[in-house]
């Protein structure tokens, strides 16, 4: 099983992003996703900057003979509303070199027209075998399971794919660690939290490198506001389930790029394959409910 570093979902200053990915390239991640997936107004790095960064990382990896089979993937936006956003995405898709993660069916359409393979990211609703087949026909080579689905759901689906002899046509990736992306809206909740309209957001997301906590009035960390995205208040953690994922035939476990903590998690998660240890999750900071088909925010 491989381990990937998911795209950073937050808005960080350019220097911080570059430093982060410099470390990422030297980390134990087998696959590194990068790019803006949440909001097109976040322009510390523009489309071409992401592309440059990704290309430089890929070249660095090629030059370093000690590194084999590392992959750089460009992630694209989940909620696209304007022709301008589509234009930026088209340029990313048509980069001619790097693999693309589609997070909206518009990206699937573009990649299909380009006749290029692509990864289906967690923001595309692929819940069953018929949908997998539709996406395979479009050029999907890797499928990331929607975050709300469970281990049993996945087991069923992968068994069906085996039975239909299509399991070898795609890799399966599971979001395994980090704050979960849960919803997308027209409204910017971070701007709202500062009492600003979205059109005058002053890019305030940059002041919250881990988003803004939205708690219940009893102090329960319910959600995180991250611009137009709402995230889980707890960090999802499938570290104890890694041997199970491996047994199910999951090809890749995704560690989300919440912070540099992700690099430690990449190491810890990989260790679970050889020498599994039992971790006790902190129920007021972590969760694993989705995998166990109970409330996502709970710990099984």
């Amino acid at each position: 099983m491989k381990f990937s570093l998911g795209p950073s979902l937050f808005f960080w200053p350019k220097k911080q992003v570059e430093d982060f990915y410099y470390k990422a390239v030297n980390s134990s991640a087998d696959i590194i996703y990068l790019g803006e997936t949440v909001c097109s107004k976040r322009r510390e790095l523009r489309g071409k900057d992401w592309l440059n960064l990704a290309t430089n990382m890929a070249q660095e990896l090629t030059a370093d003979n000690s590194v084999k089979d590392k992959e750089i993937v460009i992630s694209t936006m989940a909620l696209l509303e304007s022709p301008a956003e589509i234009q930026v995405m088209k340029r990313l898709c048509d980069n001619g070199e790097l693999l693309i993660e589609a997070n909206d069916l518009s990206a699937v359409q573009i990649m299909h027209e380009l006749k290029m393979p692509f990864v289906v990211g967690p923001a595309i609703n692929c819940y069953n075998l018929s949908t997998l087949k539709v996406l395979l026909k479009q050029g999907m080579t890797r499928w990331t399971m929607p975050v709300e689905l469970s281990g049993d759901w996945l087991k069923n689906l992968l068994q069906q794919a085996e039975q239909e002899n299509i399991r070898d046509q795609f890799e399966c990736e599971v979001f395994s660690w980090g704050y979960l992306p849960l919803a997308y809206s027209a409204r910017c909740f971070t701007a709202r939290s500062e009492d600003r309209p979205k059109d005058d957001c002053q890019y305030c997301c940059i002041n919250y490198p881990l988003g803004r906590k939205m708690n219940s009035r009893e102090g329960e960390k319910v959600f995180i506001l991250n611009g137009i995205q709402t995230m889980s208040g707890y960090q999802y953690n499938l570290i104890n389930e890694i041997p199970e994922l491996d047994k199910l035939g999951v090809d890749i476990a995704r560690i989300s790029a919440d912070s540099e903590q992700a690099f430690t998690q990449l190491t810890n998660f990989r260790q679970q394959l050889d020498t599994p240890a039992r971790y006790t999750l902190d129920g007021v900071k972590e969760c694993n409910g989705f995998w166990h088909q109970i409330a996502g925010m709970s710990v099984a």
Binding site: E148, Y184, F223, G289, F290, A295
Partner: peptide, 21 residues
């Protein structure tokens, strides 16, 4: 509904059940 419909897992995050499932 204030979220992009079909792409909101807030309900299953809190209860285990969502519009999608």
């Amino acid at each position: 509904c204030i979220m992009a419909e079909g792409r909101c897992y807030l309900s299953s995050y809190m209860t285990g059940e969502s519009p999608n499932t």
